[in-house]
Nucleic acid binder design. Structure first.
Length: 592
RNA sequence: GGGGCUGUAGUAGAGUCGGUUACAACGCCGGCCUGUCACGCCGGAGGUCGCGGGUUCAAGUCCCGUCAGCCCCGCCA
């Protein structure tokens, strides 16, 4: 670079800069050699600038430009000038100007990249991940990463203004029962023992409340050793909060404000407050899932009462065995072909449904393989319940409450996309409240916490803890955006007796509770304030705000579905010496 | 653990019914070109058809296995 100092970003040059002497530094996007004149598109974080190298004006710079190739790192000094009449490029932000280069320095050469560093090239994901540093140079990914920064900046600003204190909690901590599989870290100093990387800072943030910090927040990595999905990585980031002396409504109100500020400051969208709320029970009943996508209608309708008496054995039996029959009206869906309807049947089978009954509403009534099993008045009643009109398609699942809701709920979202019911750039928020506290686990033959073991039951349901634990509702809440759970939290138990009762119900005996998180139980006995909090999934929030289909597009260095990093080749084998220091012997040799 | 999709020059693709030397595009290399901007024109190089096995006179193509990437189920308090 010599003594050169960059004066401008490439992407920020405008007509206002005409006449200025500038120094730019960046990467060569493309070189266009006209025999005489050479043009170079120079790229940096902020965009592109066209460099013009004229052999008559600056022969030495022109000669150097002749040797320049894609992705070379180049510095230039020159004058910003208006482009000649007729050569303005309206497609380019800096298309009105160019830099007349007087001097050019090649700061570094580059091998020919394995793929073009451009937005529109379609490259296999494994190639992108192996050369992640090149992929990250692409403008669209850079915009995602910068937008992610804006999210955390806005959130921190907001929380600071609301009196929150950012406090770090340990990564080397203790394995806790319940929840996801832990990532373990062996302790060298204490042979045979392990730290666990936190699945969330849950216990520590509660202890910070006991410690009197009152309002805590942290933007923090969490680790869960579970299988990956398009929106799930083994290490991910939470915007984590906890507050003392608050009830549920306090938490929701303050958190809505944060989300609204983030939306305004990242993508300029005004979020209407307060956000709508729906109970867990209502969400399940109307949408089949606890993360309803409210960008479109097409609600589920329970027709069990009609199905119970009907002549179609599949429906009647399902109800007789304690299940339900639910249906959905695909408004104007008669354009769906027989093949497409069959595909929908395959779709619901993924979620355990045994089949999907369907009926097309023609001017003559039901056109359906199952029409013959129903009396006219039964069809009439079902049509009425589903508000069916000519041109609609009705679909039904008869199964257990869980399977019918799950299958139709997922089908609803599938069809919402397939039938184009979702308006682009729309953001439908809802709080989901009143989750059940506990869920019966048939395999483990005991209750498990729906949220986590520190979630408080609703006051009016506390008596049910003994009578009917499965019926107890929790002071828990999720924030759902466009059908994606972007945050979840609860008011916590701050009373040792209730906490002990909870462990009891979870089949965690006192000794085990003491070993696993006795320190929290101890802390609860030293003046724990009423408290509660929430954690937002930063990655999912960033996905939605950037319109990304994959979580990998909003994480600088993501992992593959097998939880490997193709760039660093982690995880990898370690030296025998390292293992010995850690008192570890391998039962399995790593695959070569 | 299970289901599905994909894998062919550096990149992303075509490759018919199993049949001659595996195509054209972008990129790359060389040459020409003074207003392009996905510059243009001419020429050239570049292949372990993911890997292993099988069927066959003959396999990119068919079969079996395996590996990798992606999507999903299970899992993810």
């Amino acid at each position: 670079m010599g003594d050169w100092k960059r004066t401008h970003y490439c992407g920020q040059l405008t007509a206002d800069d005409i006449g200025k002497d500038v120094c730019l530094m960046g990467w060569v996007q493309r070189r266009r050699d006209h025999g005489g004149l050479i043009f170079i598109d120079l790229r940096d974080r902020e965009g592109f600038a066209q460099l013009a190298l004229d052999p008559d004006r600056d022969p030495e710079a022109h000669m150097k430009a002749d040797k320049v190739r894609n992705e070379f790192v180049v510095a230039v000094q020159g004058k910003v000038s208006p482009r000649p009449e007729g050569t303005v490029n309206p497609k380019m932000k800096t298309g009105e100007v160019e830099v007349e280069v007087h001097e050019l320095r090649v700061l570094n050469t580059a091998k020919t990249p394995p793929f073009m560093v451009e937005d529109y090239v379609d490259v296999a994901e494994n190639t992108r991940l192996k050369y992640r540093y090149l992929d990250l140079r692409r403008p669209s990914i850079q915009q995602n990463i910068v937008l992610r920064h804006k999210i955390t900046r806005s959130a921190r600003e907001y929380f600071d203004g609301e009196g929150f204190v950012e406090i770090e909690t340990p990564f080397l901590t203790k394995s806790t029962p319940e929840g996801a599989r832990d990532y373990l870290v062996p302790s060298r100093v204490n042979p045979g023992t392990f730290y666990a990387l936190p699945q969330s800072p849950q216990i520590f943030k509660q202890i910070l409340m006991v410690a009197g910090y009152d309002r805590y927040m942290q933007i923090v990595k969490c680790f869960r050793d579970e299988d990956l999905r398009a929106d799930r990585q083994p290490e991910f980031t939470q915007i984590d909060c906890e507050m003392s002396f608050v009830d549920r409504d306090d938490v929701l109100r303050i958190m809505e404000g944060m989300i609204a500020k983030v939306f305004k400051e990242t993508i300029g969208v005004d979020v209407a407050l307060p956000m709508p709320r729906i109970t867990y029970a209502e969400a399940l009943s109307r949408f089949g899932v606890d993360n309803p996508d409210l960008r479109f209608d097409m609600e589920l309708v329970d027709i069990s009462d009609t199905a119970r008496e009907c002549g179609f054995k599949v429906f009647a039996d399902a109800v007789a065995w304690g299940g339900v029959v639910k249906g959905m009206n695909l408004k104007g869906g008669s354009s769906l072909s027989r093949k497409e309807l069959d595909d929908l049947t395959d779709f619901v089978k993924i979620y355990g449904a045994k089949g999907l009954a369907w009926a097309k509403l023609t001017p003559d009534g039901w056109q359906s393989p199952i029409a013959k099993f129903f009396k006219p008045e039964e069809l009439e009643r079902i049509n009425h319940l589903l508000q069916a009109e000519t041109g609609d398609v009705l679909v039904f699942v008869a199964d257990s409450f869980r399977v019918a809701n799950d299958a139709l709920g997922r089908l609803r979202v599938h069809l919402g996309h397939k039938l184009g019911l979702i308006e682009k750039d729309s953001y439908a928020f809802t709080w989901v409240t009143d989750f059940p506290l506990l869920e019966w686990d048939g395999e483990m033959r005991r209750h498990v916490a729906v949220h986590h073991p520190f979630t408080a039951p609703m006051d009016e349901d506390v008596p049910l803890l003994d009578a009917d634990p499965g019926k107890v509702r929790a002071k828990a809440y999720d924030l759902v955006l466009n059908g994606s759970e972007i945050g979840g939290g609860s008011i916590r138990i701050h009373d040792k007796a209730v906490q002990s009762r909870m462990f009891d119900l979870l089949g965690i005996d006192e000794d085990e509770a003491r070993i696993k998180f006795g320190f929290l139980l101890d802390a609860l006995e030293f003046g724990a304030p009423p408290h509660g909090g929430i954690a937002f999934g930063l990655d999912r929030l960033a996905m939605i705000l950037t319109g990304s289909d994959s979580i990998r597009d909003v994480i600088a260095f993501p992992k593959t579905q097998k939880a490997t990093c193709l760039m660093s080749e982690a995880p990898g084998p370690v030296d025998e010496k390292q293992l010995k220091e850690l008192s570890i012997r391998l039962a399995t040799r790593p695959k070569q």
